[in-house]
Amino acid sequence: MSGNGNAAATAEENSPKMRVIRVGTRKSQLARIQTDSVVATLKASYPGLQFEIIAMSTTGDKILDTALSKIGEKSLFTKELEHALEKNEVDLVVHSLKDLPTVLPPGFTIGAICKRENPHDAVVFHPKFVGKTLETLPEKSVVGTSSLRRAAQLQRKFPHLEFRSIRGNLNTRLRKLDEQQEFSAIILATAGLQRMGWHNRVGQILHPEECMYAVGQGALGVEVRAKDQDILDLVGVLHDPETLLRCIAERAFLRHLEGGCSVPVAVHTAMKDGQLYLTGGVWSLDGSDSIQETMQATIHVPAQHEDGPEDDPQLVGITARNIPRGPQLAAQNLGISLANLLLSKGAKNILDVARQLNDAH
């Protein structure tokens, strides 16, 4: 009898209710805020589980004197976190989706994509230029951005401005803007500013005609071990179906173009009346040469937790077992079709030249 009692006690200790789920994140304040929001949602869904947040620095956090596009290494903000995932030191990792490459290392998958916040870019102005827009900034004003995508589009749109690289986390960039006289304004992701509670610093939100956004911008991705079915089931509740389908289309477009950090590629997606609209573009580094096109596809946005595919093969690095396969494939095909259209119009040449120029500098 006593033996059975011990077995029952052991089973209770090993039951999922007692389990601590370890969540990996970057150390920056924004990353911690984003991770806290994901953990809060998981806690609400699984009140019996405990969650421990483990923060670590990544290569991208450490190399702050070089433009991201020049470092010449993929997975700048993800490699150390993936290493911890691989060694079973954490069970899942919360990322900004735009930091996750469209091809993940073997053994990993994006197990959830959370509801997207505003994906557009924002302009934050130096205190002396508050009330201005990019259009009304004085001639030769210097605007800071760490992104080739932003610089290429904005140089084309605002030729009277000069664009220079600015690195560091959000706090560091804002301090550089406010305390030094080098920059009249800087460009940042609206979602990051909003998550930090800095709505009052948003001086201008850039519309798609001015600057399309990065693939996955404004959404959070939760990376897990691809074979860890328990954790895949656990994080599945975080999937937002519309965000998922938009981001599958965007990531398929980028992957098929073979774009990345070192080339200016941008997108804009919208879901309306059962249609998914995808606009994508590529630019030369100075913005003088560009190709942009829009395509659409009829896609039914499923309700969360309709029964999805059981075999769960990944699409552009994403596993969404609780979302039907048909809409996911339709979104992926839309991204591939748009990429093929741009490639047929000469996108590869623009991107190759951009890559060579970026590598040469």
Rank of each mutant, 00 (worst) to 15 (best):
V20D: 05
V20R: 12
R22Q: 10
R22L: 14
R26Y: 01
K27G: 09
K27H: 10
S28Y: 01
S28N: 01
Q29H: 10
L30N: 00
L30M: 07
L30T: 00
A31D: 00
R32F: 07
R32A: 08
T35R: 01
T35W: 04
V39K: 07
V39M: 07
A40M: 13
A40S: 10
A40I: 08
A40R: 07
A40Y: 14
T41P: 07
K43Y: 08
P47H: 10
Q50Y: 13
F51L: 11
E52Y: 11
E52N: 04
E52K: 07
I53W: 05
S57L: 09
T58K: 02
T58S: 10
T58R: 02
T58L: 05
G60D: 01
G60F: 00
D61R: 00
D61Q: 02
D61C: 00
K62W: 07
I63C: 11
L64I: 11
L64T: 13
L68V: 12
I71A: 00
E73Q: 10
E73H: 15
S75L: 11
F77A: 04
F77M: 01
F77H: 03
T78F: 00
K79N: 15
K79Q: 11
E80D: 14
E82C: 06
H83L: 14
H83F: 11
L85H: 01
E86N: 06
N88E: 08
N88M: 12
E89R: 13
E89T: 10
V90S: 07
D91K: 13
D91M: 03
L92Y: 03
V93I: 14
V94A: 01
H95E: 04
H95S: 05
H95A: 08
K98G: 01
K98I: 04
D99S: 02
D99R: 02
L100W: 05
L100K: 01
P101Q: 09
L104K: 01
P105E: 06
P106Q: 11
P106L: 13
P106K: 13
F108K: 01
T109K: 13
I110V: 10
G111V: 04
G111D: 03
I113F: 00
C114P: 10
K115D: 13
K115C: 08
N118I: 12
N118W: 10
P119N: 06
H120A: 05
D121W: 02
V123I: 13
V124D: 02
P127C: 03
K128C: 09
F129M: 15
V130F: 08
V130D: 15
V130N: 12
G131R: 10
G131C: 07
G131H: 13
G131W: 11
T133Q: 06
L134H: 02
L134V: 09
L137E: 03
P138K: 11
S141R: 09
V142C: 13
G144H: 02
T145Y: 01
S147V: 03
R149Q: 03
R149W: 02
A151L: 11
Q155R: 11
K157L: 12
F158R: 09
F158P: 03
F158N: 13
H160W: 10
L161F: 07
L161W: 07
R164P: 07
I166P: 00
G168T: 02
G168N: 04
G168E: 02
N169V: 12
N169C: 05
N171P: 08
N171V: 09
N171R: 10
R173C: 00
L174E: 04
R175H: 05
R175L: 09
K176R: 11
L177H: 03
L177K: 01
L177F: 05
L177V: 12
L177R: 03
D178H: 12
Q180K: 14
Q181G: 11
Q181S: 10
I186Q: 12
I186T: 14
I187P: 01
I187S: 06
L188V: 02
L188Q: 07
A189Y: 01
A189G: 09
G192N: 03
G192S: 10
G192H: 01
L193S: 08
L193I: 05
Q194P: 10
Q194Y: 05
R195H: 09
R195A: 04
M196N: 09
M196R: 06
G197I: 00
N200I: 13
N200Y: 08
R201M: 02
R201Q: 09
V202K: 07
Q204D: 04
Q204L: 14
L206M: 14
H207I: 08
H207S: 14
P208L: 10
P208S: 09
E209Q: 15
E210V: 12
C211T: 04
C211W: 07
M212A: 02
M212L: 14
Y213P: 08
A214C: 09
G216C: 15
G216A: 05
G216H: 00
G218M: 00
L220F: 04
L220R: 03
G221F: 03
V224R: 03
R225F: 05
R225T: 07
R225Q: 07
R225D: 06
K227G: 03
D228E: 15
D228S: 08
D228H: 04
Q229E: 13
Q229K: 08
D230F: 04
I231E: 01
L232N: 13
L232E: 04
L232A: 07
D233H: 13
D233I: 09
L234S: 03
L234A: 14
L234D: 04
H239S: 12
H239T: 14
E242T: 07
T243R: 05
T243K: 06
T243S: 12
L245C: 11
L245R: 03
R246Q: 14
C247R: 02
A249L: 04
E250V: 01
R251Y: 02
R251K: 12
A252S: 03
F253Q: 00
F253A: 03
L254K: 01
L254W: 15
L254F: 02
L254R: 03
E258G: 15
C261S: 01
C261V: 02
V265R: 00
A266C: 02
A266V: 15
V267T: 15
V267M: 15
T269G: 03
A270L: 02
M271P: 02
M271N: 08
G274W: 09
L278Y: 01
L278R: 04
T279V: 07
G280S: 04
G280D: 04
G280R: 05
L285Q: 08
D286G: 07
G287P: 02
G287H: 05
G287N: 03
S288G: 13
D289C: 04
D289L: 09
S290P: 10
I291S: 07
Q292R: 09
Q292H: 14
E293H: 13
T294A: 08
T294N: 14
M295W: 09
M295H: 03
Q296H: 14
A297V: 08
T298R: 14
T298E: 10
I299G: 01
H300D: 15
V301Y: 09
P302M: 14
A303R: 13
E306S: 10
D307V: 08
G308S: 09
D311H: 14
Q314W: 10
Q314Y: 03
L315W: 10
L315D: 04
V316F: 12
I318P: 00
T319Q: 01
A320S: 03
R321A: 12
N322W: 14
I323Q: 15
P324I: 05
R325I: 15
R325W: 13
R325C: 07
R325H: 13
P327R: 02
L329E: 01
Q332N: 08
Q332P: 06
N333Y: 05
L334N: 15
G335V: 01
L338H: 00
A339Y: 04
A339T: 13
A339D: 06
N340H: 02
N340C: 01
L343D: 14
G346A: 05
A347G: 03
A347M: 05
K348H: 15
K348D: 13
N349S: 07
I350W: 15
I350Y: 15
D352G: 01
D352V: 08
A354L: 03
A354R: 15
Q356C: 02
D359W: 13
D359F: 08
A360K: 01
